[in-house]
């Protein structure tokens, strides 16, 4: 069936089988391989994307269901202004090791910050509890998301003040 999905602000039209999973469409048809696959049971969150602003597991959404939707993948975090604060915070705070869970973690983090400018340690842990990491023990992921939140808030207050 013909679908058009807006991925990272550009439209991708194509013909998909009804059974094609969104993650496979993104990875294999559109060719954006930053979205990963880590399990079969909707457990790990390596395939997380933002769909109409909300983080979802793209292994458990049919590509056809995303017809007309706005999807953001890790490749869409960076803008003309540079890296998203969540990206630089993950580097600065050593929030990644192997990097496989990282796209999902960053997208959830970015979505959390958009809703909650000053999340507590517990709020961050709760928000990322649908995403598994095997390397970091989460300590620095939590730290990085909070750093990104603080930097975003500081930048906002600076631009409000000026």
């Amino acid at each position: 069936m013909e679908i058009t999905v807006t991925i990272n602000e550009s439209d991708h039209a194509g013909d998909v089988e009804p059974r094609t999973l969104l993650v496979d469409h993104i990875r294999r048809t559109v060719g954006l391989t930053g979205t990963h696959i880590g399990c079969d049971t909707t457990s790990c969150g390596a395939c997380t994307v933002l769909m109409d602003g909300r983080p979802v597991k793209s292994c458990t959404v049919l590509a056809a269901q995303a017809d007309g939707a706005e999807v953001t993948t890790v490749e869409g975090l960076k803008t003309a202004d540079g890296l998203h604060p969540i990206q630089s915070a993950f580097t600065d705070d050593h929030g990644l090791q192997c990097g496989f869970c990282t796209p999902g973690m960053m997208l959830v983090g970015a979505s959390l910050i958009a809703e909650n400018p000053d999340p507590s340690d517990d709020e961050v842990r709760w928000a990322i509890s649908g995403n598994l990491c095997r390397c970091t023990g989460y300590m620095n992921i939590v730290k990085a998301i909070r750093t990104a939140a603080a930097r975003t808030a500081a930048a906002a207050s600076e631009s409000n003040g000026s």
Binding site: L32, T33, T35, Q87, F90, T91, F100, M106
Partner: peptide, 9 residues
């Protein structure tokens, strides 16, 4: 990190 945070791993 540079490649991994941009989905370029």
């Amino acid at each position: 990190d540079a490649r991994l945070i941009e989905g370029q791993g």
